[in-house]
Amino acid sequence: MTPRSTLLMQSARPLYWMMLAAALWILLRGHNEPGGGFIGGLLAVAGSSLLAIILGIPAALRLQPLAPLPLAMVGVGLAVLSGLAGALHGLPFLTHLWTGIGLSTVMLFDLGVFFAVWGALTGYVYALVDAGETAP
């Protein structure tokens, strides 16, 4: 691994947590205002990529809830699950339902998108970073 600046090494983790917080905020905000799972997922990917580039892939993997592929699978599973809720009520698949207190199956769907983007793209980035380390 090529040597990196100490400043970057030290600030990587705090930066990651800040980006993750922003990602979550965007994700939750998406319910009523601009934002949502895809953008939040991209922000989380940016954070994870930062970690992977500065501290290495193992460090980035440790701070992710699941390995990329399982994460993406859970995401897709959640999205499908959210669609089934409507189907169980006799409505077409992916018809979304709202409860009174601002919770909804849409939220679940967005969370699924969040995980799917986070998982799929970090898998992609890690593979690239890994190949980049060994590039000629």
């Binding site: 895809f38 953008i39 991209l42 922000l43 990917v45 940016a46 990529s49 930062l50 580039i53 793209l121 992609y124 980035v125 690239l128 970073v129 980049g132």
Partner: peptide, 12 residues
Amino acid sequence: AVETVLVVVAAS
């Protein structure tokens, strides 16, 4: 978000 992540990806 896309442009930012794209630059990160492309950089790697």
